[in-house]
Design a protein around this nucleic acid. Structure first.
Length: 470
RNA sequence: CGGGGUGUGGCUCAGCUUGGCAGAGCGCUGCGUUCGGGACGCAGAGGUCGUGGGUUCAAAUCCCGCCACCCCGACCA
């Protein structure tokens, strides 16, 4: 039967597919002010799962949560030269409040290095106060010219970690630890996205950082998305905000700071990293609904079985949703759950039930199987594990198939039209980087041949991964 | 900032050339039949046609101003 597709097929128009799925899966709407977004309950439920997984890892790395103000004195921004230069064009500034013009304009934070630096300076006196490891969950505002829901919005939600250390080595080690133990671990093991890690080039570095580390993922169309960054800030902010301490010998020293963040942009990564023509495919570990138990017909035995099954699964710690809206057709409801990417459906109908069975459907492969009702408490969790693993395997296969090694700038540009290209950094260099930029191709990160973070960009074997990016 | 385009029901849009009762599809409400893969029938609700002015017996439609948004470029990263 030739029905029109539910979504614009990815191969026809990937950006259009993205827009369609945002709406039809009820993830988000555009806000009334240009570039803002409304995150709907289904989308926010996924973000809450992301938050709790990331938060747990941040705490395991020793950082504590705090909260700093949304409003920052404009003068703070100007204290670090590169920082102000990088952020000035995209600041939202409050000039009037309380019915009159303000003495000093107030900036809506685009990031919080400055205000947190100011308070770190107060709190750090002694080497015993270090390291100081802080994190906050907050909204920030950057007045972007081009916006896209989740990927680049005027206001977005994120966590931003800010730490101060006694030595450069300690700061560098911590920035790397966050990249490895918090970001990469979360993205690979929870989001099922096989991210690359590496250093940013000078061109791509955060405004005010001495070194930026990043996680980069490949989307379904072969383009790259920066999923998270971890910065070494050297002593730039410590000097600008006077974060100093007395060392064990009684000498005044300047601290070394880091900052690191992941945002609601990861929602975009999740959508474009796993989605297919039928909709989202949410990995079980971030799914706010892992299993939907769907009553096929309005039948007492069916409804009773649905309630019993969902309770049994909840007892096993599975996040379950019951769909007993039998006044809506079965086809419509299965299509909706596919759009929303719920990893597993348990379809309960009178026919199967006579044999003590139900139908289990995997979202990732669309594969259906019969299962005995009594086996579900064991069968469903193990199927969820299987889906989690196979989404990661599929994304990894795509990334590897679409990554090629090249030796010239021209080849790199060509390869970046469909995926990632790896080229020796010594071959590309900043001149080659600038040439690629003319074709909307950028260096996503610098890596060792083994895919690890290189200590410096000058190592002779460093590889540049280049791609088109969101 | 330069160039192009669009503003009509919740959404997508037609109608404008040639002025004459404000429309379609989807969505929504009710009833019925359906409902193991986007169901169907019937009956409904819902719009100051972006905004201000002008022309006219009559303006969604023609003219002038303004505003907003989108696309391309530039800028930014």
């Amino acid at each position: 039967m030739a029905r029109p597709p539910v979504l614009t097929p990815q191969a026809d128009d990937f950006p259009r597919w993205y827009q369609d799925v945002l709406t039809k899966a009820e993830l988000a709407d555009n806000g009334p002010v240009r570039g803002t977004m409304v995150i709907r309950p289904y989308g926010y439920g996924i973000w809450e799962r992301m938050q709790s997984e990331v938060d747990r890892r941040i705490k395991a790395a020793g950082a504590e949560n705090a909260y700093f103000p949304l409003f920052i004195p404009q003068s703070y921004l100007t204290r670090e030269a590169e920082h102000v230069e990088g952020f000035s064009p995209e600041l939202a500034v409050v000039t009037h409040a309380g019915g009159k013009e303000l003495e000093e304009p107030v900036v809506v934070r685009p990031t919080s290095e400055t205000v947190i630096g100011e308070f770190m300076a107060k709190w750090v006196q002694s080497h015993r106060d270090l390291p100081l490891l802080l994190n906050q969950w907050a909204n920030v505002v950057r007045w972007e010219l081009r916006t896209r829901v989740f990927l680049r919005t005027s206001e977005f939600l994120w966590q931003e970690g800010h730490t101060a250390h006694a030595t450069e080595a300690d700061a560098a080690a911590y920035a790397l630890r966050i990249l490895h133990d918090v970001y990469r671990d979360f993205m690979v093991n929870v989001l099922a996205l096989p991210v690359l890690i590496g250093r940013k080039t000078r061109q791509e570095r955060f405004a005010g950082a001495t070194n930026t580390l990043a996680c980069e993922a490949m989307m379904g169309d072969g383009k790259a998305l920066q999923m998270g960054t971890s910065h070494e800030l050297g002593q730039n902010f410590a000097k600008a905000f006077d974060i100093t301490y007395q060392d064990a010998e009684g000498t005044q020293q300047t601290a070394w700071t880091t900052s690191w963040g992941v945002s609601t942009r990861m929602m975009g990564g999740l959508i474009m990293g796993h989605g297919d023509d039928a909709g989202l495919r949410i990995p079980p570990k971030v799914a706010s609904v892992q299993v939907v138990v769907l009553a096929i017909r309005d039948d007492p035995a069916v409804l009773a079985a649905v309630a019993r099954i969902s309770e049994a699964l909840e007892d096993r710690g599975v996040r379950v949703k019951v769909d007993d809206r039998t006044d809506t057709s079965f086809g419509r409801r299965s299509t909706d759950w596919e759009l929303k990417g719920v990893p597993v459906r348990v379809e309960v109908g009178p026919r199967d039930l006579e044999n003590g069975e139900v139908t289990l459907v995997r979202r990732d492969t669309a594969e259906k199987q019969q299962a005995r009702v009594v086996d579900l408490p064991v069968a469903v969790p193990s199927l969820l594990d299987l889906v989690q693993g196979s989404l990661l395997a599929e994304a990894t296969r795509r990334r590897d198939e679409r990554t090629v090694d090249v030796t010239t700038v021209d080849e790199a540009r060509e390869a970046a039209q469909t995926g990632f290209a790896r080229i020796p950094w010594a071959t590309l260099g900043e001149a080659g980087e600038a040439e690629l930029a003319n074709h909307a191709v950028t260096v996503r990160c610098l890596q060792t041949p083994a895919g690890e973070v290189p200590a410096t960009e000058d190592q002779p074997d460093v590889m540049a991964v280049v791609a088109r990016a969101y």
